[in-house]
């Protein structure tokens, strides 16, 4: 569909443009500004050039955090996408079950990040948390404060619990838009359950899946609140992701220059990875 031509439209989008300018463009410029300078407060700035970038790209701490991020996003996608598809496939297509399932699925999405963090932090505590206590009672040695693996498991489970619903809802929307005739034709052609999934459902879900993968990748790559609330980046640095590292640098150590440079590198990495995801997933459309 082509767009309707109308001058007034510009007036209507103007507030949004201004808002984006103030909320994104200007802060971004400020960050760029900080990233090439050094400051010790008092509004005294010294030109630093690309020093901060050099430092970051040569810092082991940064690369470790980046690796943690990549691993985390990989695990999240590997768990949430298949799980989301699986749940969506098994959701009812009509009847009273539909609204019930949709509301249940939407519930975790409505809870703010820090609340989710707090819930799991309490839930997982060995002394008072239901989960931690039960696991301890079962003789399983679980402690996210001490054991890096337990900390990781906690953060991953928390994210899966929080965000798989989004994948489910997107996939479900894709699934219900498939006309019945496709399922009938597949039955007539003697297709197996797997074939129906592989040749009808998956191709028809492709677009929404692309959105789901992108959203979940970007979000998981930017994870901050949950590990901050639950593990605070620990134990040690085991759950110190780029965002946590960034905040430690900026707020904890008040190193504004390095923090700004780090933000830019971080931003560029997300942009690049999202672009790669998008290109790879859409390129199969073009081949013939």
């Amino acid at each position: 569909m082509e767009k309707t031509w109308n001058n007034k439209a510009w007036f209507l989008v103007l507030p949004v443009l201004l808002l984006v300018a103030f909320s994104a463009a200007i802060p971004l410029m400020t960050v760029v500004n900080y990233s090439v300078q050094d400051t010790f407060g008092n509004n005294a700035f010294f030109w630093a050039g690309t020093d901060w970038f050099d430092d970051i790209l040569h810092s082991a701490r940064f690369w470790e955090a980046l690796q943690r991020n990549l691993l985390f996003s990989f695990i999240i996608l590997a768990l949430e996408i298949p799980l989301g598809i699986f749940i969506a496939l098994n959701m009812p297509k009509k009847g009273i079950g539909v609204p019930v399932c949709l509301v249940l699925m939407a519930l975790p999405l409505l809870i703010p990040w820090n609340v989710v963090g707090t819930i799991w932090q309490v839930f997982g505590r060995v002394d008072i948390g239901l989960l931690g206590h039960t696991l301890a009672a079962l003789g399983i040695d679980y402690n996210y404060v001490r054991d890096p693996l337990d900390a990781w498991i906690t953060v991953v489970v928390m994210d899966v619990w929080h965000w798989t619903s989004l994948v489910v809802l997107l996939c479900y929307a894709g699934l219900v838009s498939i006309p019945d005739a496709y399922y009938q034709a597949a039955k007539i052609d003697g297709a197996s359950r797997w074939s129906v999934f592989r040749y009808i459902q998956l191709p028809k879900m492709k677009r929404v899946l692309l959105i789901a993968v992108l959203l979940r990748f970007m979000d998981s790559f930017m994870i901050y609140t949950e590990p901050f609330v639950v593990t605070g980046g620990g134990p040690g640095n085991s759950t110190t992701f780029l965002s946590i590292d960034l905040v430690k640098t900026a707020v904890g150590q008040f190193d504004l220059g390095p923090a700004a440079a780090m933000s830019i590198v971080y931003f560029l990495i997300i942009l690049l990875l999202s672009w790669i995801f998008y290109t790879v997933m859409t390129s199969s459309d073009a081949d013939n």
Binding site: A181, Q184, A185, A191
Partner: peptide, 24 residues
């Protein structure tokens, strides 16, 4: 059955579309 709107398996080639019911 042939439906009102063409039902084809988008991701398959024409050949594979025709082979599908036989392979199944």
């Amino acid at each position: 059955q042939v439906f009102q709107f063409p039902v084809i398996y988008d991701t398959m080639t024409v050949y594979d579309n025709l082979a599908f019911p036989l392979r199944n």
